[in-house]
Amino acid sequence: MNAATKGKITDVKELENIAKKIRLHILHMLTRAGSGHTGGSLSAVDAAVAIYFSKMNFNPEDPSWKDRDRFILSKGHAAPLLYAIMAEAGYFPFETIGTLRKIESPLQGHPCCKSLPGVEVSTGSLGQGLSVANGMALGLRLDNNPAKVYCIMGDGEIQEGQIWEAAMTAAHYKIDNLCAVVDNNGLQIDGPVQKIMGIAPIHDKWAAFGWHVIDIDGHNMEEILRALDEAEGVKGKPTVLIANTTKGKGVSFFEGKVEYHGVAPSAEEYERAVKEINNG
């Protein structure tokens, strides 16, 4: 029996507390690093926490365990989120998070699977994670392996044409051991997504591509858990959660601010942010 299945967490309060810790880790890492993507790391926290800690089978002691569930952060610039979760899950010593973006750190600016065991595939160039997720899902299906694949994309990211190639593939091959999430925070580097290159109607687009689509409040843990349960029951087609989120969620002065897409908190902002999260 692999150590991976050490009790999954289903208690909403407990998951919310983990999400709070993850947000603190992210801010700590980014402030230490002095650069990185704050807004999009914070917006995807709740969905990622729910997936990792309530759903996934994994084993930090054996990152390449063949029966593990897979998680792909297609929006690779949210690397601090992935690293914070992996640190919390015990993939590497907690102190390592202080080395984010530093020379020779396993915590590269964008996730690198060759630097950090447990990262499934390198990402950072947008639009590619869903294709890789499909490939993994097909490979697992060929082996009759019941493991699942999760993939988080950004809303700006779905402007990439490859996402829609992959969307077709998942439906065509009836890939149902995959659950994708669009972190719909409404902002990209240059401004509001709808202003830069409109992607609406997101729900209808995915539905038209043959997906089962579930719209949720991406910061409501109960809703996220319900949607993930629903996804597991959908057979013969892939499922995508449209997680409606707020960029910079959890820190009032980062929320909804496009300026914090690619900027790390200052030392002063960090102090204020930590207070807010701890009091929130």
Partner: peptide, 22 residues
């Protein structure tokens, strides 16, 4: 797996398959 006229997706899917030991 015929991926249709979609080379970028083909490469990503191939990478994913390889990551499950294929």
């Amino acid at each position: 797996f015929n991926m249709g006229i979609a080379e970028q997706d083909m490469i990503g899917t191939a990478a994913g398959l390889s990551l499950t030991g294929k």
